[in-house]
Write a protein that binds this DNA or RNA. Structure first.
Length: 423
RNA sequence: GGAGAGGUGGCCGAGAGGUCGAAGGCGCUUGACUCGAAAUCAAGUGUGGGUUUCACCCACCGUGGGUUCGAAUCCCACCCUCUCCGCCA
């Protein structure tokens, strides 16, 4: 959520920043509602002050006296007015919040301009495309031959865009989970968290999924809960409505969870294989930092996700998303795109974002600054480290052999009982 | 799922229609005492908002409604916690 006080002071700055996202925003309405809001607050405060003064007078008065009756009539009138102003305030605040909750975060100044992914900028690449002396296959073919996935039965027991992983593929998911969590907890200093996979609406609002992207979520309406679309939601909301100790910052969490997405509006895209699923597993990285530390933390967090790809020997590139391609809550995002030889394309395998204070303001996550003083909003960050299904895809396609087998990256072998090859 | 008890400041805990942002204690901070520490004494110690911003004012006793001139206190609904029973991995 954007800060209404800052909007009030410099609407033009906000208008220009959101225009970079391709979003035309008219702040006149918001500012007018805000002015009305403050006027209502002042009116309400005055009335309450009058009320409490009248009440003081009543305390000493004889209940039979004319004075008391006069006071009581005055109180009646004030109470009625308070009720009216309170109703107006409620309506006003709902209107204001309703608008503010649908406004996206301001893009960071440093990021490239552009309307869509074509304007994204490649910052760096790691490794090189592997060479094959045969035509590399897509993971679906590779998996079919090795009996790794059962797409048909997944549809039978659930529906399309779900997959059953079998044998070595299921084992590899488990191995990747353990491998990634181990690296992040030991080498990168994250605390492991296993959160609920169902969360309430307040949590979905805190990180920015609700209200604007409600149609993307699987909801259990009977219970008022949603399946998490990413571990970001439960893990960031761990500290909702909290004031963190300065000494505890940065707080760094890593969590393995399944993620559930409706993929509304993606009909026809990536219909084959594991790339786009209603359910996928992911190891997530989440950080809470002081405002002045978030940019450096963003670089570091991206590096933590990269370390996994590097350890697995996978060629990838780091992309700085342009203003038009940025997610709703993010001020800056680096995507990690892994090379998929079977597809002959780079595909997103991780997305690392700095949200600034946008989520912190929605979720009221603060810290006590140096030397005490008023609590300040933290900055929140997160990134996939990594999406596990897509990592399986990348391993299958990059490590495939002419005979149809797949070598297992060395770093992963000990997590797969010493297995060196799937054949 | 059924029955009962309960949700008050960082924590414990009083308050049971008006004098209550809320006693008392613990904790924490600062000062005094001390060579220093402990003990003791004194003062301070929540969050949000508004404004005419070294100050003043308003709100907040689980959440939302209601009764009343007036609600932490009475009524209703919901949420949560605890105990017992049932069920269950």
């Amino acid at each position: 959520m954007l800060d209404i006080r800052e909007i009030r002071q410099s609407p033009e700055r906000f208008r220009r920043a959101l225009a970079r996202r391709g979003q035309q925003t008219n702040f006149e309405e918001v500012i007018a509602i805000d002015a009305e809001r403050r006027a209502l607050i002042q009116r309400a405060d005055q009335l309450r002050q009058a009320k409490s003064e009248t009440e003081k007078g009543m305390r000493g008065a004889d209940k039979q006296s004319a004075e008391f009756t006069e006071f009581r009539d005055k109180m009646r009138q004030v109470a009625q007015e308070i009720k009216e102003v309170a109703a107006a305030q409620k309506e006003n605040e709902e209107r204001l919040r309703g608008i503010l909750l649908t406004l996206p975060n301001l893009p960071a100044e440093a990021i490239p301009d552009g309307a869509d992914e074509h304007a994204n900028v490649v910052l760096r690449t790691f490794g090189e495309k592997p060479q094959f002396d045969f035509e590399p296959k897509e993971h679906v073919e590779i998996g079919e031959r090795l009996g790794l996935f059962d797409f048909e039965r997944a549809v039978k027991i659930s529906r399309s865009r779900f997959t059953v992983s079998m044998g070595a593929a299921a084992h590899m998911e488990r191995a990747l989970m353990a491998f990634m969590l181990d690296m992040h907890t030991t080498a990168h200093g994250y605390t492991e968290v296993l959160p609920p996979f169902l969360v309430n609406a307040e949590s979905m609002e805190g990180t920015g999924q609700f209200p604007k992207f409600r149609e993307d979520a699987f909801e259990l309406e009977r219970d008022g809960l949603s399946l998490i679309p990413t571990a970001e939601v439960p893990v960031t909301n761990l500290h909702r409505d909290e004031i963190l100790e300065l000494a505890s910052l940065p707080v760094k969490y890593t969590a393995y969870t399944p993620c559930f997405r409706r993929e509304a509006g993606s009909y026809g895209r990536d219909t084959r294989g594991l790339i786009r699923q209603h359910q996928f597993q992911k190891v997530e990285l989440v950080q809470f930092t002081r405002p002045e530390d978030s940019e450096a933390a963003h670089e570091a967090l991206t590096g933590h996700a990269e370390a996994i790809l590097q350890a697995l020997g996978l060629h990838y590139r780091v992309v700085d998303l342009c203003a038009g391609d940025l997610g709703f809550s993010a001020q800056r995002t680096y995507d990690l795109e892994v090379w998929l030889p079977g597809q002959g394309a780079y595909r997103e395998i991780s997305s690392c974002s700095n949200f600034g204070d946008f989520q912190a303001r929605r979720a009221a996550i603060r810290y006590r600054p140096e030397g005490g003083g008023k609590p300040q909003l933290v900055h929140t960050l997160n990134g996939s480290g990594l999406a596990i299904g897509r990592t399986v895809v990348a391993i299958l396609e990059n490590y495939q052999q002419a005979d149809g087998g797949v070598l297992i990256p060395e770093a992963l072998q000990k997590y797969m009982g010493g297995m060196k090859i799937i054949s």
